[in-house]
Design a protein around this nucleic acid. Sequence first.
DNA 1: CTTGACCTTGGATACAACTCCAAGGTTTAT
DNA 2: ATAAACCTTGGAGTTGTATCCAAGGTCAAG
Lengths: 167, 167
Amino acid sequence: MYRIGELAQLCEVRTDTLRFYEKHGLLSPSSRTDSGYRIYTEADAERLRFILRAKAVGFTLAEIAELLSIELDKSNWACADVKGLVDDKLANVEAKIAELNHFQLSLQRLSQACCGGPESAEHCSILEALESSTENIRCENHSHTHDDAQFTKTCQDKSAVKNTQEK
Amino acid sequence: MYRIGELAQLCEVRTDTLRFYEKHGLLSPSSRTDSGYRIYTEADAERLRFILRAKAVGFTLAEIAELLSIELDKSNWACADVKGLVDDKLANVEAKIAELNHFQLSLQRLSQACCGGPESAEHCSILEALESSTENIRCENHSHTHDDAQFTKTCQDKSAVKNTQEK
DNA sequence: CTTGACCTTGGATACAACTCCAAGGTTTAT
DNA sequence: ATAAACCTTGGAGTTGTATCCAAGGTCAAG
Ligand SMILES: [Zn+2]
Ligand SMILES: [Zn+2]
Ligand SMILES: [Zn+2]
Ligand SMILES: [Zn+2]
């Protein structure tokens, strides 16, 4: 049995957040003291942990409420309904993953095209790619190193670069 | 050269959104007509497309601004700076993917434990898992099918797991 | 009995990222 | 020359997800 502050501390949220979740039907304390203090059980804490886990991965509170609300009303749902809901969310998550994978690839391509060296970014492949937004990114040939053949290392040549400078 | 409405239609955003992006330094029209109408170039359109792609995958406008702002100021950045920024975002994306993969797994486990049939969800494994929030999910043994041994097909028959909590 | 930590409620505020509105100016087509 | 369809600005409203605040009630310790 926890009072609101205890549960909040336990799960690292604010008491305000717990009241907010209550107001929105996500988590209500199992009881109250005579004086009106909220009393949460361990089951409430578990429910909160589920909410937090779901939230951490990008579910909206509305989606979480939908997931949780079925439980209040079990007998009016079939396994098919429940599983369908979970599968919907699953598809949702998978779509998000696909989206992120796509962008990951873009970022990797950008990253690979850049030498990461201390040279001025005036001819940086990353910036050029952002400007032109073409699909194929041109690797730097380091003509921007105003220097000699000493610097004709290319993209794949990830030579020692530890120069962390301020701007 | 596009007027605001044309660019909006082209990229499927509202004119309001374009003005909003302008106000927040993400995308300004390259020029104005004498009467004050915004005029966007193809380069502006490309920039907008980048913004939209980045947004679609979860970057905040602030992050996008950060990415784009470097370009205004190329010569004050080194390749190392630019690449570092991209790599930060990349790490960010990868972390998000990992998070989503984790939740994907949870959802898959939930989904697998449920028969998905027309039976009442009163003993649905998914709901039980949500309630108890235990790590290991018990598969349905279909005792809820008010029926005979005909329905003793199981997920993989790990119905030995017992109920542990309740304080 | 007073103090300080905790709790209650309702309402205000914040931030992101729009979205809509009002009042008026511009362009184009008939 | 008038209407329709565009554009301008500034500002208000919306949704989701909280946070903060004020005024006051509760509780255990000294
Ligand atoms: Zn370089
Ligand atoms: Zn570079
Ligand atoms: Zn079932
Ligand atoms: Zn089920």
